[in-house]
Design a protein around this nucleic acid. Sequence first.
DNA 1: ACCCAGGGTCATA
DNA 2: TATGACCATGGG
Length: 220
Amino acid sequence: MKPVPLRALYDQLFSHYGPQNWWPADTPFEVMLGAVLTQNTAWTNVEKALANLRDDPGLDAAALLALAQDDLAARVRPAGYFNVKAKRLRAYCDWYLQQGGLAAMQQRSTDALRHDLLCVHGVGPETADDILLYALQRAVFVIDAYTRRLWQRFGLISGDESYEQLRHFAETTLGEDVQLYNEYHALIVVHAKDICRPKPKCGECVLREMCPSRGSDPTG
DNA sequence: ACCCAGGGTCATA
DNA sequence: TATGACCATGGG
């Protein structure tokens, strides 16, 4: 099967769905909270958890840290894994305050920030890259499970690459472009919601004409 | 009733 | 380094 260029896939998604203007949040700090809360969790549930914090105590690191962990857990309950996420949110707020806030963070290099983010309890590669791209506007390509499945289905990757390998592949192939990375990841997620969940509907997929594996079983 | 979601940690081999 | 168990709600 002839591989489809990475960029052509993006162009097709963009022309159909248009700009997504992610991340849906009012502030960079809200992006960060959402990035932790959405781990293996539907976004509609994350919105309910954020709503339970928005007015009281507010989406603010110091205010959230002032809550007891059990209290925080009760508020983020709709997002699932509430005990786990309460602990992770506390760890993140603690780190955020140590950084000295957004302005101080923006003085630091992307590599340094990424290294530190990965040291925060509960922040893995995808969460770190969500934060770097969508809260801090850094040119970091976010890889998620659907990105892997999509690119594998289109013959662009074998599928067993590491997270870092895929990120490097995307960033070198596409070139350094914050806005492109922003839209590409968002479009992949939106496309997955539209077509591939709960069951893949490849007959209605906007990518079906360029899909090298059409006719075989859908993988994502 | 079953499956999965905009993952990550930890214990084990 | 590489799996597997675990975390838990809500919508299809």
